[in-house]
Computed example of a mutant assay.
Amino acid sequence: MQNEQKSIGTIQAYSRISESFFEYLEMKRYKNISEVKPKDVNEFVLHISNRFPKGLHVVLPVLRSFFRFLESKDKATACLIWAVPSDSRRKTYIVSGVTYDETQKLLETVDRNDSLGKRNYAILLLATRTGLRRTDISNLRLSDIKWKTGTIELVQKKNNSLLVLPLLADVGNAIADYILNARPKVDSPYVFLRSCAPFTKIDGAACYRISSQAMEKAGVHQKEGEQKGIHCLRHAIATRLLEKETPLSVISTILGHKSKDSTKIYLSTDIKNLKFCALGLDGIEVEKEELR
């Protein structure tokens, strides 16, 4: 694992999963990795699958690599590797987005008459117009906004690649309104700051809270199981572009994906064109008795 070329995002994922495993062992009061048995691995997989049901395709290979490393250092036996389930195939899920009308409702819930409202409105508008991830919004720097060229240029945290987006007029106006009239007067390179001291940059969790609270006020995505947060707004961007028959390669560039395969999951939101994929029932006639 040490010799493999991994992106920063992948290395961080490996670290989080390994840390989760050690936290689990600590919870079970183990003092040494040599005490771990195959049944403990099985129980951990069940434990983490409940927390991250869509992430096992990442978790299981990481566990194998981790146990392989431990085995090479004579810290664990090979039986731990075999205790990791083999089925780590990534499942395709139907993504959950919001409609254009719903995004307008979200924006209308924000009171822009105070400093907090100006900040939250700029964040929501930026998310709905550009599809930026919450980590990239929280890490957005003043220098990333190129006012002269009318672009936003940033290095994405997830894949460490450069993303260049147009600075749309309404987004630019909202950000300028916040910077000039509401942003705390402190020496910070980041655009979006906490509204009370210490005036550090907001984090991704704050972006999630801002969007989920707006959804609650607007009555959007309140049914059980419906996703909330900034990522739903990212899905909405992809959905609207698909409705306009925008090529996947273009959508992939806008969303900052390194591979077009990452964008294909959004095809499930294109209901209009999915209808043309439906198969007819001609030639599959059945007798009444078969339907009973």
Rank of each mutant, 00 (worst) to 15 (best):
S211L: 13
K223V: 00
R129Q: 14
P184S: 05
L124V: 11
K148T: 15
L180W: 10
I179G: 09
I237M: 09
D170R: 00
G225T: 01
L140G: 03
L126Q: 09
L180G: 04
W147N: 09
K105C: 08
I145Q: 10
T200R: 13
Q156W: 07
Q104S: 06
L125N: 12
N181Q: 08
K118R: 12
G117V: 02
A169Q: 14
N173Q: 13
L180K: 15
N160L: 09
K157Q: 15
A176V: 05
Q104N: 09
L180R: 15
K148R: 14
R134K: 13
S188A: 05
L167G: 09
S211V: 15
L140I: 03
R112S: 02
G131W: 04
I230R: 01
Y190D: 04
I210M: 01
S211T: 15
T135N: 11
A182V: 02
V191Q: 00
R133T: 03
G229M: 04
I137H: 02
L165C: 08
Q156A: 12
E153P: 12
Y190N: 06
I202Q: 01
I152T: 08
E108N: 10
S188D: 01
C232G: 06
A169E: 14
A197M: 14
G131P: 06
A122W: 02
Y208S: 05
Q156V: 07
K223L: 05
D111K: 01
K201T: 10
L140V: 06
T149L: 14
R112F: 03
L125V: 05
M215I: 04
R133C: 04
K201G: 13
L163H: 11
L126V: 02
T239M: 13
V191H: 02
Q227P: 00
G172L: 11
G219Q: 03
A197Q: 14
S195W: 10
I175V: 12
L167W: 05
F192M: 06
Q222A: 00
C232F: 05
T128G: 08
N173H: 12
L165I: 09
R112Y: 04
D111F: 03
W147K: 10
T109H: 00
K201Y: 10
N159Y: 11
D170A: 07
S115A: 14
D177S: 10
K105A: 09
S161I: 13
R194D: 08
L116E: 14
L106N: 04
R133A: 06
Y208L: 08
R194Y: 10
I210H: 01
F192T: 03
Y190K: 03
K146L: 15
I123S: 04
E216P: 02
R209P: 08
E226T: 01
S138W: 07
D136G: 09
G219T: 01
D111Y: 05
D187K: 12
I202V: 08
L106R: 00
F192W: 03
G204R: 05
A236P: 06
A127D: 03
T151N: 15
N113H: 11
S188F: 00
N120Y: 01
A169I: 14
I123R: 09
E226Q: 13
Y121G: 01
P184D: 07
V220H: 02
